[in-house]
Simulated scan of single mutants.
Amino acid sequence: MQRNPEAPDPDEDPVSHVDLTQSPEEVLEYWTKERMAEAKPREIKLPEPGQRTDEQD
């Protein structure tokens, strides 16, 4: 049985990144019709308008 991906740490970089340990076939096997039907998209949190980040110089 495949395991669920770990939830990201809220203090980590908000960019999605996952080190896969499964083969492409194992990933496809995990995503059954039932899992796809129950899947929910990740919530995307954008900075507030006008909020400055370190990358904006």
Rank of each mutant, 00 (worst) to 15 (best):
P10D: 14
I44G: 08
Q51K: 07
V15Q: 01
K45T: 09
L20T: 12
L46P: 11
E25L: 06
H17K: 09
E38A: 02
I44N: 11
Q51E: 12
P41N: 03
P24H: 02
E55K: 14
P49H: 10
V27N: 07
T53I: 07
E12G: 11
T32D: 12
P41Q: 05
P10F: 12
V27F: 09
W31P: 05
E29N: 00
K45H: 07
D9I: 03
M36P: 00
D57I: 13
T21I: 08
V27K: 08
M36F: 05
L20V: 13
A37S: 04
L20G: 10
A37C: 01
G50W: 09
K45C: 05
E43K: 15
R52E: 06
T21C: 02
P10R: 13
R35T: 07
Q2F: 08
Q22N: 00
K33Y: 08
R52H: 07
L46N: 15
D9C: 04
A39D: 02
P8R: 15
Q22P: 00
V27H: 10
V15C: 09
P47R: 14
E34Q: 10
Q22V: 00
S16C: 14
A39L: 00
D54I: 10
D13N: 08
A7M: 11
P10S: 13
E25K: 01
E34R: 07
Q2H: 11
V15K: 00
L28D: 13
K40D: 04
A39Y: 06
M1A: 12
M36Q: 03
K40F: 05
M36L: 06
L46V: 15
K45G: 01
S23E: 03
S23T: 10
E55D: 14
E34F: 06
D54F: 10
